[in-house]
């Protein structure tokens, strides 16, 4: 990790993370979703339900989790109609 900035080096206005794009929240969760594409029907419900916008729809129609931002809430796994998303505990 980088050395934390000093007071004199900090921008005014309390914006330590510039924008949310640089604020990687993926390490917050205790579990992460794993999508089994062999069972997936490409319904994309997980993409729409994800409160963090961390599930993207690929060009081939399957969805993919961006683990940089996924907080591991498990809503995708709960909503998946064919139960192809499994929440895996982090080690």
């Amino acid at each position: 990790m980088n050395q934390p900035k000093k007071k004199s080096e900090l921008d005014l206005g309390a914006i330590p993370f510039k924008s949310s794009k640089e604020y990687k929240t993926g390490d917050w969760g205790v579990a992460h979703p794993k999508i089994d594409h062999s069972k997936c029907t490409k319904c994309t419900l997980c993409h729409f339900f994800c409160p963090e916008g961390a599930i993207k729809v690929r060009e081939d129609g399957y969805t993919e989790v961006d683990y940089n931002y996924c907080k591991g809430c498990g809503i995708c796994a709960s909503e998946c109609p064919v139960k192809c998303i499994e929440m895996i505990m982090k080690k």
């Binding site: 921008d11 206005g13 330590p16 510039k18 604020y23």
Partner: peptide, 28 residues
Amino acid sequence: VSGHLGETELRLNPSCPITMGAMDLQDY
């Protein structure tokens, strides 16, 4: 201030976004 797209003004501007009022814990 510096946004992730470079130097910008301290205001919300979609062409150079910054996050204001975000979590700021023991670190800063």
